[in-house]
Design a protein around this nucleic acid. Structure first.
Lengths: 214, 214
DNA sequence: TAGATTGTTAATCGATTAACAATC
DNA sequence: TAGATTGTTAATCGATTAACAATC
């Protein structure tokens, strides 16, 4: 999309800008300076300007940034202007929870199928989405436009399942399985390792200065 | 706990070391060099040694690291040697999914209560954990040892709920609400912003070179 | 002892912040 | 025009990698 490679640090911040701009729009704010936004977001104004300028000059000297325009531009950068079909593989607790997430649909991420191998869930419908037999995974992908595969399966089977979806042409995997996936091809993987997050919290809690409680 | 402050980048990598060491133990590997571990983890050996030495010299020249010993040490560093009680606030889909997570319990994170405000879920039991009225939140915390509060509530109420648990002495919040919490005191907050993660995936998918498909 | 590999210091790289000229 | 604020270059800071002496 862009000429030079954008660093991972910058990409990580984009959704946060998106969220703050969304809130500003809701609050009816029309324009904002990098300085004011920096106060709200607890980052430096310099970083905001630096980040945004990776993608283009969205502001105007002496004025700042038009909130709605910037929001739209960041939405486009994030690829939120096009609807993206998702399939969820693994109809367990998280799989079901994700299928129920209305906020994803709002941003253009539409779940069109859930796959599992358990007869207990196959045939059910979650949030209007059918749970199908994983045996039909390949057939389904070949007959539908699937942009993102969400993996909520046990880590033991995650690499195989990843292989299967990638070989059908899926190029984005949202991985909730607690294992690293190494896919050679041009595929993007985003990991949500919940227990890693919890362990970091645990570390930071332990590292907190002791409270003097009686 | 330690003298000098450990950088966030290092802390983020600790759970990953923990996981790889766990797998090595299961595979019956007794010792490992930073070099071999670096190959498996796709990081530099230098980084591994540098990271570990923030916490102490766990290795031995000419030998490497004893897998089980290192695993135990990292567990301790992460605070996994002590059981930590959690409460989940918000008995919706994710709240319920998290309560069902067996792998947390395995690492010493035990959910002892779920809170909600909806009569439809109050009184239910999820994975053996009772769902209670949020009105009883303060009383419960005062009568139990609660280390971590998990927030799976709508973002509109998240800041208030955070305030409530913090004022009862809870010092760690695992925040799933899609909003930033700014707590002044000595409280640690770890955010799991699922839609941020999904948007990053979406960006990276959009930035992928186009495939020439017919 | 010789070989291997750590612990640690020094060099490099990249990301963040500061500064300011350009310009609305 | 004067004032404000961006876009962008330069300076600083921190994190990663390389190198090697210490040592098992």
């Amino acid at each position: 999309m862009e000429g030079k490679e954008i660093s991972r640090a910058v990409i990580k911040r984009l959704p946060r800008y998106h969220r703050y701009l969304d809130e500003l729009m809701e609050a009816g704010v029309e324009r904002i300076s990098s300085s004011e936004l920096s106060h709200r977001m607890h980052v430096t104004a310099s970083q905001i300007r630096q980040d945004l300028n990776h993608f283009g000059g969205f502001g105007q000297q002496g004025y700042g940034y038009n909130v709605e325009f910037l929001y739209r531009e960041i939405s486009k950068i994030l690829g939120l202007d096009a609807v993206k079909n998702m399939i969820i593989i693994g109809g367990g607790n998280i799989g079901q929870a994700l299928a129920n997430f209305e906020s994803f649909k709002k941003r253009g991420f539409v779940t069109i199928g859930i796959f599992d191998n358990s007869p207990q869930v196959i045939g059910k419908t979650i949030s209007g989405v059918p749970v199908m037999d994983i045996a039909h995974l390949e057939t389904f992908i070949e007959n539908h436009e699937v942009s993102i595969a969400v993996l909520t399966v046990p880590k033991s089977v995650a690499p195989q399942i990843a292989e299967r979806v990638v070989s059908c042409g899926v190029r984005a995997i949202w991985n909730f399985a607690h294992t690293d996936l190494h896919i050679g091809e041009k595929v993007v993987i985003e990991n949500v390792h919940l227990s890693d997050s919890l362990m970091q919290l645990s570390y930071r809690l332990s590292a907190l200065p002791e409270v003097k409680n009686g």
